[in-house]
Amino acid sequence: MREPGALPELQPGPPEAGQAGGRPAPSAIRSEAPPRRAPADGRTPNARAWWLVAPVVALVAFNAIVPLMTVVNYSVQETFGDNVFFFEGMKWFREVLGSSRFHQALQRQLLFTGIILLIEVPLGVAIALAMPRRGFWASVCLVLMAMPLLIPWNVVGAMWNLLALPDIGLLGRTLNGMGFDYNYTRQPLAAWATMVGMDVWHWTSLVVLLAYAGLSAIPEAYYQAARIDGASSWAVFRHIQLPKMKRVLLIAVLLRFMDSFMIYTEPVVLTGGGPGNATTLLSIDLVKIALGQFDLGPGAAMSLVYFLIILLLSWIYYTVMTRDGGQ
């Protein structure tokens, strides 16, 4: 049975099909028809609604727009303290874009994001596929999966820091005991492996939960039809599960991309960007410049470049993915 959130008389329209009890409604099919006359439409305008939205608009303005404008302001000026500023135009931007330090940080960032996406998305999908679809164990699995997501980021960093310590950490000692020469505070490769391992541990669950939600939405008839058509498990995955999961995976990749691109706390707590600069990702470098060296101008310019890269990549990704038969 569907539980309406509001009085039916006040509902904006018939509920989406498929949620209704027993038999999903024919409008499930309707929504797949050409969108020429989809039921979405203009609502009765009501000026009072703006007052309800106003607090949120104000909050967003103070939270996002005002600070961003401050950064923009800094990025085109030079200061030597005492609140005295000189206009510098695009100087900091040229400097940032031309610096090899920025290039290296960006490369490390892209490498990190690439690696974790390549691991987390397939792994997440695989785990979601292996999870039971209903019953007691389904709930248990879901709770277990949600657990890492509930742990604060700095705690995750600290946990892995301790876990991986070569002398007393469980992981570090075990690896060394097995004959591997492992010390993440000294070897760049070990540091990277530990950082990637930590991220995979922390965030694969998100992909799992999203993929699982996508899988649960597939009607049983699809699996039945596939069994009758003699489809292999791979064919079922390729032609039923993957297409039906496409939208949630799109979101999952986008979320993981943005989050991993902005990751800061965990690697800082784990490695502090070291050894050397081996794990200094963009965000860490930014903090070093802006706060460590208090170079406000270059810091602001780098922040904006950083922000624009994320925006641009997300936009390109989303446009490409949705244009390719997203409908």
Binding site: M1, R2, E3, P4, P8, E9, L10, Q11, P14, P15, A17, A20, G21, A25, P26, S27, T44, P45, N46
Partner: peptide, 22 residues
């Protein structure tokens, strides 16, 4: 035309059985 729904004394029944489950 512009009168909001809740002031209209209108009732609607849908194809799906919409009731308060709880």
């Amino acid at each position: 035309t512009g009168v909001p729904v809740r002031k209209r004394r209108v009732a609607m029944v849908y194809q799906q059985f919409i009731n308060y489950g709880h």
